[in-house]
């Protein structure tokens, strides 16, 4: 297990290293002065420019510049936004938690519905239920998120008015921003309308989370179905049947765990996809998250913000990936224990 942990952390370290190199090189690849791209200070005077050159080691070699850049990032300085002149770290602190909240909610929905549906499809292999679930998965996978999001708004907020169409929380609730995670902030606040605020935040997250979750969910359905089918064909399921165990017992004790082993690792892989979908959905649902913020920055050619957003979102995705790997190891004894004998 220690070996496994070290290997994963090693992977995390090197991916982050590569990421930081890419991010740093962007300041040279983007048009304009590298120093301005790094710091984002477009209106710096002579004195300030000298300070920045000192800070970012711009008068030394590229390697020194890179180490200075890394040093700045670790001290929390991502530069300032070119368009708004606000520190990127502040903007990230405002917007990133909202994205994480949305992504985690969507991942939760996708897993909670996708994986069991896939298992059910596999258990009823080649029966009508299997076909229905597969059709649903195919349709869900083919629908583009921007259209689906609009349909959801049209149906559930305009026609039925069950859920609000945009934003994260009704402006009536005065919730002080502490962590940026709306749900945690509401729980931390001492507002007398805490329960209502919580309910309101929940109502706001439902539609965007569903819109984001649909595509990954259909992928999970198919992954879970294939994985379960493979497991059900295996010899140990046959042996378990010969033991006289009931079908439910076999699925519950042998099927689910073994097929989860096959899926969990891929969850991390498909999470990157989910984050991209979330960025589009954020724009449509006017969700004040890092995705819509990043898209705006791209339109505004705010290179500093693009760099900062890249690092933040990519690190988040890596982190989820590594987490999925640990979950995989927890489920799979083959990873945890040394192999003895033949």
């Amino acid at each position: 297990m220690l070996n496994f942990t070290i290997r994963r952390l090693n992977l995390l370290f090197f991916t982050l290293l590569m990421l930081s190199i890419v991010s740093f090189s962007l300041s040279y690849f983007f048009p304009g002065d590298a120093l301005v791209n790094l710091s984002g200070e477009i209106n710096a005077d002579q004195q300030r420019t000298e300070q920045l050159v000192e800070l970012y080691n711009m008068d030394k070699s590229v390697f020194h510049q890179y180490t200075a850049y890394i040093g700045q990032i670790f001290s929390g300085n991502f530069g300032i936004s070119m368009s708004s002149q606000v520190p990127i770290s502040d903007e990230l602190h405002t917007f990133l938690p909202a994205t994480i909240e949305l992504c985690l909610a969507a991942l939760f929905i996708a897993l909670i519905f996708g994986v069991p549906l896939g298992f059910i499809a596999a258990i009823f292999h080649n029966k009508p239920l299997d076909k229905i679930i597969l059709t649903f998965a195919m349709v869900g996978y083919s629908i583009p998120v921007f259209w689906f999001a609009l349909i959801l708004i049209l149906l559930f907020s305009i026609t039925l008015s069950w859920f609000p169409s945009s934003g994260q929380l009704n402006l009536l609730f005065e919730i002080e921003q502490v962590t940026g995670f709306k749900f945690i902030d509401i729980l931390l606040s001492d507002s007398e309308y805490q329960a209502q605020a919580l309910k309101d935040a929940f109502m706001h997250i439902v539609l965007p989370a569903i819109a984001v979750a649909t595509a990954p969910m259909t992928i999970f359905i198919r992954l879970a179905r294939t994985s379960m089918l493979d497991v059900l064909e295996s010899n140990y399921i046959k042996a378990a049947k010969a033991k006289g165990l009931s079908q439910a017992h076999i699925i519950y004790h042998h099927g689910i765990r073994n097929s989860l082993v096959g899926i969990v690792r891929l969850i991390g892989l498909h999470f990157a996809n989910l984050v991209t979908v979330a960025m589009i959905a954020e724009v449509i649902f006017n969700w004040q998250g890092a995705g819509s913020w990043l898209i705006e920055s791209i339109f505004a050619r705010d290179y500093t913000a693009i760099q900062g957003g890249l690092i933040a979102l990519a690190s988040f995705t890596f982190f989820i990936n590594i987490l999925a790997d640990f979950l995989y190891a927890a489920l799979n004894p083959l990873e945890r224990h040394k192999k003895h004998g033949a």
């Binding site: 010899n235 140990y236 042996a239 004790h253 042998h254 799979n332 004894p333 083959l334």
Partner: peptide, 9 residues
């Protein structure tokens, strides 16, 4: 070996 569930002790 293949007839024993790899994830159960």
């Amino acid at each position: 070996m293949s007839c024993l569930d790899p994830t159960n002790s």
